[in-house]
């Protein structure tokens, strides 16, 4: 497997950390070298957050730099736009269509651009965009948006087998929440397989 760089972006509080832990666990279960770089502290309070997951035969820097991401997994529409320069020209974005207004927009100092994802896609950016929040809600809780997105990602990474994903999920979510998270993952996976065909 070539080195694979996945940038996970979103808004503090959306569960990006757990997503990166899940992905990191899957990579290490495959026996890959893996590094995950997380954000703790200030930006977790509703700021723009980014986590890097890098896997391959040997990984040095834990950071995904400008132009280095193979995939951007975005939890929020405008975050996909913000972090676009971190993606390779050949990369793909998997994104939630949810829009969360940042404080400068709420307080009227900035505007939230219209139809960001549509415009990016039209311009030729490779993208899978869908409403992960609704999928998560239909599974039982808005909190599993992260796992739904990971399910979609899994559809694009067939080299990581289903058994590995299953074990990885068990290692990062508490037993009593496993069922709902498994459901969310499967929903995401099915959706990803369907969407993947139209990429």
């Amino acid at each position: 497997m070539e080195n694979l760089n996945i940038l996970i972006v979103g808004v503090g509080g959306q569960g990006t950390l757990l997503a990166s832990k899940f992905l990191g666990a899957a990579a290490s279960l495959m026996g890959k070298d893996v590094k995950v770089s997380e954000v703790h502290g200030m930006s977790q309070r509703g700021g723009s957050v980014v986590t890097c997951v890098k896997m391959g035969d040997q990984v040095a820097s834990p950071i995904i730099d400008l132009g280095e991401a193979d995939i951007i997994l975005s939890f929020e529409a405008v975050e996909a736009l913000r972090w676009l320069p971190y993606m390779k020209p050949t990369g793909t974005i998997i994104t939630n269509t949810q829009e969360i207004n940042p404080m400068p927009v709420i307080s009227g100092q900035a505007v939230y651009p219209e139809d960001v994802l549509g415009k990016m896609k039209k311009d030729g950016i490779s993208m899978v965009a869908f409403d992960a929040l609704s999928v998560a809600e239909s599974c039982g809780t808005v909190k599993c948006v992260n796992i739904v997105l990971l399910g979609v990602l899994a559809a694009l990474l067939p080299e990581i087998g289903e058994e590995i994903w299953k074990q990885a999920l068990e290692s990062v979510v508490p037993a009593k929440l496993l069922a709902v998270n498994e459901k969310a993952f499967q929903e995401g996976l099915a959706l990803g397989k369907k969407k993947g065909e139209t990429l």
Partner: peptide, 11 residues
């Protein structure tokens, strides 16, 4: 890309 409004941390 510059159209992305800043998203500073908030309470």
């Amino acid at each position: 890309v510059t159209d992305a409004p800043a998203r500073p941390p908030v309470m």
